[in-house]
Design a protein around this nucleic acid. Sequence first.
DNA 1: GTTGCCATGTAAGGTGTTACATGATTTA
DNA 2: TAAATCATGTAACACCTTACATGGCAAC
Lengths: 193, 193
Amino acid sequence: MSIEYAILGLLSWRPLSGYDLKKIFEDSPLLYWSGNNNEIYRTLVKLHRESLVTREVQPQESLPARKVYSITPAGREALRQWALWTPEPPQLRHAFLIQLAWGDALSPQELEAQLVQYEEEIHTQLQMARAQASPPGGVSYHSRSAFLDPDEARTPREKLLWTHLRDYWVSFYQAELDWARALRAKLDGVPEK
Amino acid sequence: MSIEYAILGLLSWRPLSGYDLKKIFEDSPLLYWSGNNNEIYRTLVKLHRESLVTREVQPQESLPARKVYSITPAGREALRQWALWTPEPPQLRHAFLIQLAWGDALSPQELEAQLVQYEEEIHTQLQMARAQASPPGGVSYHSRSAFLDPDEARTPREKLLWTHLRDYWVSFYQAELDWARALRAKLDGVPEK
DNA sequence: GTTGCCATGTAAGGTGTTACATGATTTA
DNA sequence: TAAATCATGTAACACCTTACATGGCAAC
């Protein structure tokens, strides 16, 4: 799938500008695109051309005009049809595992150092996922881009979905961390040759 | 990272032809590229140009000549340097989660059906991962492309790494399945609106 | 005074996929 | 006799990323 439906989905939640979308993509691991301008602004033009979104230009003093996009009924229908597509298994692009596969070329110290670094990196991700899943004080900060915030859900069912989605990432990074730690523990004491 | 180091890694394990590599990529979830000809054959040419691999042409009767590539000392050193790169967190491209995020547009039956289909898909992946992790009879079939087969490891440490890597996928798909089942159970009984 | 935020967009290039092209041999 | 395996490669296109370009305002 391409970024098109991810953007359409966000617009089904609320009207947003390209800049808003960029930020949402940047800090959501779920929306796995980099959030670069090129893709977002071009996709918005495309969606607009296909009449799946409308565009409202809001002029501003001494700033480029904000172009806010809203989903149309045709857009909602396209999104619905997409939600009915046959689900595909997740694609895990895990370069570090490939590094480990050929990690026997490293000394025990080098290998250990790589694992420690990886654990630190994942720990950071875990903290961020946890912060998103349950913001301190029970209320979310970023009132602007509270993407998938269960408090913003419009139905009980949507709330359940969004809660479960947020927890997904916490579990994922936790499992990742446990795995790396278990491997490092096992490596400790194994002869190199 | 690009496919380049994945190929170099495989060649550090044993000399292989483009066709061999293609098959290995096709049935390994770890090597997450599609294994299409274009990328593999072009990368081999590039690696050869950079003297990281050598090429041996084996003519065959009534078949295109097999071109078998072997890693050079310079190739091994490049691979080692790559193994020392700062580890990056895994990138999970999970389109189904995005579908679920906007799944509130579906009826309870449609949503349930999507989840069931997803579970079936993951179950298949899990079975395949299990088959690779511990082939029936304790010996692997595909003697040709036994990529990451712990029995093929050259040191105790490599064996440990490869075993742990194979188990990774089983855990991953198992967690995925558990997650989907838990969500479906919770959805059962939640009012739509 | 330098960094960061707001807000749009373009250019260039790398990465990855699907499909096309050939053709003999083996297997069902 | 149809499909799969072996074995190479090319063409066309889609997708994605990094960097470039502009410029005012606010905060530290």
